[in-house]
């Protein structure tokens, strides 16, 4: 490695900035636009981790990531207000996921209410619109519904369980390029 190259590297990481501990930054630096490459880097890394996990653990990868997501959901929602009503819990969840995921409750036109009772089970359809998991999978050419989706599933289930104190289950009904339909089964 030449001395010139090392000097050049040192020069790139040197500045005259005086940084004081009390100067807490109030906004992201650099600007979000300049973070685009970083975002893509993180997405690629996540995709690589998930692809490798799938290769190593096979179908077991889904269970591992689901459990991890669920644990995280429980931990995060611990600090949220406890609600018995599902509607309120979904509102809390929406706050929890803001900026990363956006979802809405949805029903087919032949159903009258959002809380549907069918074949002895009670459930709510959720349509996930903005989803960083979907973006990551599509960015890396991976299938939807795999281990990374399971992490989000676990996260949602864990958070709902923590907020309502009831057992819940989430099922993938359909995955698409613009939105995904999920079924939140309440127990």
């Amino acid at each position: 490695m030449s001395a010139g190259y090392i000097d050049e590297l040192h020069e790139a990481f040197h500045s005259d900035l005086v940084y004081r501990p009390e100067e807490i930054p109030l906004e992201c630096s650099p600007r979000p636009k300049e973070m685009e490459q970083t975002l893509h880097g993180v997405m690629k890394l996540n995709g690589l981790v998930i692809r490798s996990l799938e290769e190593i653990a096979g179908r077991g990868a889904n269970a591992v990531t689901y459990r991890a997501g669920k644990k995280f959901g429980h931990e995060v929602a611990k600090y949220f207000q406890k609600r018995e009503d599902v509607e309120g819990a979904l509102h809390e969840l929406s706050d929890l996921l803001r900026g990363q995921y956006s979802f809405e409750v949805w029903k087919p036109e032949d159903k009258e209410t959002f809380i549907i009772e069918e074949n002895g089970e009670t459930f709510i359809y959720l349509v996930f619109h903005d989803c960083i998991v979907r973006q990551t999978l599509r960015r890396n050419g991976l299938d939807q519904g795999g281990p990374l989706c399971q992490t989000l599933f676990g996260y949602v289930v864990g958070a709902i369980e923590e907020i309502t104190g009831r057992k819940a289950k989430l099922e993938i009904v359909h995955t698409g390029p613009n939105a995904c339909l999920k079924k939140l089964v309440l127990k």
Binding site: W106, Y125, V127, H129, D130, C131, R134, H174, T175, G176, P177, N178, A179, C180, L181
Partner: peptide, 23 residues
């Protein structure tokens, strides 16, 4: 519900959705 799977799968690109939320 606006998943747009039909858009992706249509070989003729014959579909158009209006009033949809684009993720």
């Amino acid at each position: 519900m606006g998943c747009l799977s039909c858009h992706e799968i249509c070989p003729a690109q014959a579909l158009e959705h209006r009033g949809i939320y684009a993720a």
